[in-house]
């Protein structure tokens, strides 16, 4: 791995009223990497993303982004420093058109007063239309997002993250509820993004993970169990042990 460390988690612990969702989590991600995070249910994958994007504050440990300590920053300040997040349940602005959704996500100016004078922002629209094309939504730009199908909604949220242009993009099960074909289309989008953005993807679909990942991190019981390429990880006896009873990693 040639790149610099863009994101580093050190000894992160998260407790929910006594229950330790994550403990002693160490994770380092290089700039431009596409990292997949897998693990059995309850392994703490989503919690790990929550900690990185500021939704949940860790009870111990330290998070550094581009060399700076960001452990205590609120989520909107983390977003300003370049962390974008896609949620497990697709969340877009259903009453707004697809174009307006992208417009909101395209946030070069964040202040209330700066945006008061921003009207129909012609020059920016070009870029947004290209984005819509990338995820196949160019035909529905002027439709309310609430009319989109589930797969389209997922793609729209991915497009929102791209419009936001975060350096680090966290994705929680981006292919949930997609057909096999839609999943493969998503894999293509992700492969086009690697290098430019740093992606951290939580996913269950191993076919998808194999398609996109450089390095896979396997989590179990709130900590990292194994890390490596897909083939290495699958052979790891500890990983097999963790997935025992759920039919092995391939079905997870």
């Amino acid at each position: 791995m040639a790149g610099e460390r863009i994101l580093e988690l050190q000894d992160i612990a998260v407790e929910f009223s006594g229950f330790k969702a994550v403990s002693g989590l160490n994770l380092g991600i290089d700039r431009g990497e596409l990292r997949c995070l897998i693990g059995p249910n309850g392994a703490g994958k989503t919690t790990a993303l929550d900690v990185i994007c500021g939704k949940v504050k860790p009870s111990a440990g330290r998070i550094t982004l581009k060399g700076q300590d960001v452990t205590r920053l609120p989520e909107y300040k983390l977003a300003r420093r370049g962390v974008g997040r896609k949620f497990q349940v697709p969340s877009v602005f259903r009453q707004l058109s697809v174009r307006d959704n992208l417009e909101v996500a395209y946030c070069k100016h964040l202040g209330v007063f700066g945006n008061l004078l921003g009207f129909k922002r012609g020059a920016e629209n070009d870029g947004l239309e290209k984005l819509a094309e990338l995820v196949g939504l160019e035909e529905v730009l002027d439709q309310p997002a609430g009319y989109l199908s589930h797969g389209q909604t997922q793609w729209l949220e991915i497009a929102l993250l791209l419009a936001q242009d975060s350096e680090v993009i966290l994705l929680d099960e981006p292919t949930a509820g997609m057909t096999a074909q839609e999943t493969m289309h998503t894999a293509k989008i992700f492969n086009a993004l690697r290098g430019r953005h740093t992606l951290l993807v939580v996913e269950h679909d191993m076919a998808f993970v194999r398609e996109i990942s450089d390095v896979i991190t396997v989590m179990h019981q709130g900590r990292v169990l194994a890390e490596g390429r897909a083939a290495e990880v699958q052979k790891d006896p500890a990983v097999r042990e963790a997935y025992l009873g759920s039919g092995g990693i391939a079905d997870a």
Binding site: C53, E75, Y76, K77, A79, R80, G84, R85, F87, S91, V92, F93, R94, Q95, L96, D100, N101, E103, V104, A105, C107, L110, N115, L160, Q164
Partner: peptide
């Protein structure tokens, strides 16, 4: 526009940095 986005999904807007 951002206010309308807040009306639709407040949490989502926080994560765009607003």
């Amino acid at each position: 526009l951002i206010l309308q986005a807040i009306r639709d999904d407040e949490t989502r807007v926080w994560y765009f940095g607003y």
